[in-house]
């Protein structure tokens, strides 16, 4: 839902970032207001995950230029955990397996870290069990997954559901979902998309990184952006995604070549 007067949650200006001294992001501009759903598409390797990790604060990525303001605050002044507590959420393209750490314990510690920041009371083990069982319904996940180590031995689709479960628990302000749809079967895609829709309100925003229209059939984006070579090359409405289904990304090369020549 686009409301020009809604709060500007995320303001990315001319963002440049490198990994191992190799420039990946080369001038990203993007504004996200409360209530909006943005889709970010683009070829493999165009920099989508890099953008998401830079926003979340992964130490391997170095910001070399530009600014990002999150609700008016300089995002890069905040440690990754502080960003999360303030409501920035990254659903990982490849969720990490952590052997020996119980999923339930992990979810509880993380939920309480966010709650504390929001001025809510800490949930003890028992209160949290009730809380998490409510949230399990959002993604129709089997409680048995709580007893296992974080993501260890989870199938691809189970890992993605676990990501959305975390999103449901953390109630983020800006959720960046990096290919949460890949690896999901048709039913799971509906369930996950339904979960994301349930969690969307007029006070928060979602950034969906995806390759496929089928996710956007379930979650209607207000904006669709196409990333190429570390920048946002084109922005449109939901029709841009439909157009991409038809044309593919051939036009990207022409446009990049034209810009390079200019």
């Amino acid at each position: 839902m686009i409301r020009p007067d809604a709060e500007l949650l995320l303001d990315i200006q001319d963002l440049h970032a490198s990994v191992e001294d190799k420039p990946i992001l080369k001038g990203v501009n993007l504004q996200v207001r409360a209530g909006e759903v943005h889709a970010v598409m683009g070829r493999n390797g165009s920099g989508k995950s890099t953008l998401s990790k830079v926003l979340a604060g992964h130490p391997a990525y170095r910001v070399t230029g530009g600014t990002v303001r999150y609700r008016g605050q300089d995002l890069f002044e905040l440690e990754p955990e502080e960003r999360a507590r303030l409501g920035v959420f990254l659903g990982f393209q490849y969720p990490v397996e952590i052997p020996g750490v119980s999923n339930l314990e992990f979810l509880r510690v993380s939920t309480n870290a966010r709650r504390e920041k929001q001025g809510e009371e800490e949930l003890d083990t028992f209160a949290f069990e009730d809380h998490v069982h409510d949230k399990l319904k959002v993604v129709q996940m089997d409680p048995a997954f709580l007893e296992r180590s974080v993501n260890e031995g989870f199938s691809g689709g189970e890992k993605k559901r676990n990501e959305i479960l975390q999103m449901a628990l953390l109630e983020p302000v800006v959720a960046i979902l990096d290919e949460t749809d890949s690896g999901l079967d048709i039913d799971a895609l509906r369930i996950v998309a339904g979960g994301v829709n349930q969690l969307a309100t007029e006070d928060n925003a979602t950034l969906l990184i995806t390759h496929y229209q089928r996710l956007l059939d379930e979650i209607t984006p207000d904006y669709v952006h196409v990333m190429a070579a570390g920048r946002i090359l084109r922005t449109g409405g939901r029709e841009l995604a439909l157009e991409l289904e038809q044309t593919g990304y051939d036009w990207v090369d022409q446009e990049l070549a034209a810009q390079g020549a200019a």
Partner: peptide, 8 residues
């Protein structure tokens, strides 16, 4: 990083 990105 995964844990930190969850506020820990």
């Amino acid at each position: 990083f995964y844990l930190q990105s969850r506020g820990i």
